[in-house]
Design a protein around this nucleic acid. Structure first.
Lengths: 227, 227, 227, 227
DNA sequence: CATGAATGAGGGTTCATTCAT
DNA sequence: AATGAATGAACCCTCATTCAT
């Protein structure tokens, strides 16, 4: 993933001299911000992040013109890395249902204890569009595999699955300290509700009010839990 | 302007009047706070509440020494009123499963759009102990009825149901504006996962880590979603 | 100027209790701000003003929601008090030309050393509309008196006089420390150029570009130096 | 990317190249700064200047140890070039009064729209000494020509003329957008006040207070508007 | 020497809480 | 007891200047 993987024998390693340092700072900021946002949520003092990154305020603001930009960046990275890992895990799993289960397990384990991440589900904006698209595509894949294998309840949409994961994430968050592991029970229950043996039709989703902002809504594969 | 202007010849003169006045103020504050917290969440400016209650800051702080105290009081009241209504509805319903379903429906309908209430699930603290106990007792009743009727999955605990309701509440909140009604699908899925036909055993809850703060947890009927 | 001047025997002196204090603070803020703005211009730290007023930041911002509001208020007050004094002096002066001269003298003496005031001529916005109108009306009066007495050069507009005063104010400012009194010479020169014995016609003012904001422009009595 | 890539066999090798490069940078900085300062005044972000010059911050600060130094340099250059042009124009004009008039016209036309230049009249410091001397000498020349031709009012000093030009410059600035051309009227008025037909003596300049900083001021040929 | 990233002291503004009236 | 003005510690962000590369 880093350019270290690519041999660059004939190129002058110039011009990236300062960039290296800056990149390290940027990384440090993102990492510190990730930690701090996860621990304390999106309302932390920016100074705290600067302090923990070991950089000055100016550096922080050079890299991220706004606190919200920083938060968005951090969330996007966490989203992406989570999705990547989840995707790989799912592809490595033969059994479709096991893949679905594993996805949820991984998701919840990953998001437990990340306050900012969970906050992002409630906050306006939600995950960045790109992530959401990627996520939806991936989840849709899982869904299709399970459907084709006759394992998934008829009528379950991608949006349902997305919402379910978001919903359970918040449970993980809420129970994280006092009842760790409790969420596995809920997950099992929900997944059992998704099994094909549940033949009752699901209630039709009401038509969306005004598609003012979110230009989705094809009725079948809709998603986007977080906005 | 004060009720002191009104002579109250036959009654113990001043004290009562004050009391009444104070009580009215307290009620006004709680009502306004309820509205405002529901609309804008727990981060609103206290002034907004004072303004809408028609009382001064001093009065507000006389009744509630802290913003958090006010919030806790408001939440407790909303919790209680919700539980009372839910309880009555449940008692009026013959069919146990219908009672359970109705409870969830009512809960989610009630909590949709109450930002502070939903926030309270994530925030440390959660609902006050008294409420939690009441709630747990009530839900346990629902659970037992369904169990006895052979409708509820074996091994489902009160805590599971509590968590489920909290979890779905957050979904309602998050999807409220963009996908209203979407939550009914999730609810159906979850409830189907709770049906007795699901015979797989649920994962055992791990033993609690350190009962540092919340001294509950009898192992079987434990609950308390919000801490 | 204070309500102490008005006897209020039959009214309850209630309800202004806190107001008195607040009013004193407000006055203190305005006075301190006046001083500080005059000394250092409009860029001073708000904290400095708070310090010199003896109030906290919150108090300052309670009275003036924005630094600019404070500045505007201060400027308006200074404008008004200056105009009032100038008006009275002019009315007390028989000779029209002497009235005009006195007005300029008073203006310049008053504005010498007030950085913020002079800055306001250059800054966008200028004096508040009301002040400008009052000022223009007053200057127009002076102008008419001189014209009727056959003392003022034909074709001189109110706007000319307004501009002249603004212009000389800046000279006073610029020369204040090093060449005090120097401005009197310029003033004399300018006034002599305004005398009726100068019979050459003045260049026509070009038509205004776009009357986007300032709804003036009757061609004859136009004014508004500061925008 | 540097000129070091170009071999310069027949010349003293490196040093000159550096010098040339540095000189080009310096010129670029000054030019960009001139534009930016003129457009936005002396408070612009130094980065803007660096960006427009195409040099890094370090280079900029190597050439000008302080933002103020850069500003001073820019102003000095603009002053000088303006004076040079004005001087030439004046020398090419036969009629002394026309020369004087032309000087003012040119000055005002030149300084209209140069925010920093006009700001410099109000700011402490003013134009650098050298410029002031040159300017004073030149204006004194104009003055003498007019005096000798019997066109200029008796007692008018160089300082008066300097101040007048500064004063009118600010008017131009202030009215530039809303009332363009308005300043010509004021200029005419002032010049008419300078004509020899005005025989009233001008008020004596008060003796200077303390020649703390600016050791000029012989009473007759004094000048220096900007401090 | 050039570069541009880093620094950090402010600057304007908000808001939970206190306190004089 | 009620009022609402006062408080001041934070908060987010900017920008002149320095410094490692």
């Amino acid at each position: 993933m880093t350019s270290a993987d690519l041999p660059a024998p004939t190129q002058p390693p110039v011009k990236r001299a300062r960039r290296a340092d800056a990149e390290r700072n940027r990384a440090a900021i993102i990492e510190a911000a990730g930690t701090v946002f996860a621990e304390q949520g999106g309302t932390v003092d920016v100074r705290e992040i600067a302090r923990r990154s070991g950089v000055g305020m100016g550096t922080l603001y050079r890299h991220f013109p706004t606190k919200d930009d920083l938060l968005a960046t951090v969330l996007e990275r966490e989203f992406t890395s989570w999705l990547t890992a989840a995707h790989q895990a799912a592809e490595a799993t033969e059994d479709p249902w096991e893949a679905l289960t594993g996805f949820f397990e991984q998701t919840l384990a990953h998001q437990a204890g990340n306050r900012a991440l969970v906050e992002s589900y409630t906050a306006t904006g939600g995950p960045p569009r790109v992530c959401a698209e990627y996520r939806d595509a991936f989840i849709d894949e899982l869904r299709t595999r399970c459907l084709n294998a006759g394992l998934l309840r008829a009528g379950v949409t991608t949006a349902d699955l997305v919402l379910l994961s978001a919903s359970l994430s918040q449970v993980v968050q809420a129970t994280g300290d006092s009842h760790p592991g409790q969420w596995r029970r809920l997950l099992r229950i929900s997944l059992d509700g998704l099994r094909a043996r549940n033949t009752e039709p699901l209630p039709e989703p009401e038509p969306e009010p005004e598609p003012t902002l979110h230009g989705e809504g094809d009725g079948g594969g809709d998603a986007s839990a977080g906005d």
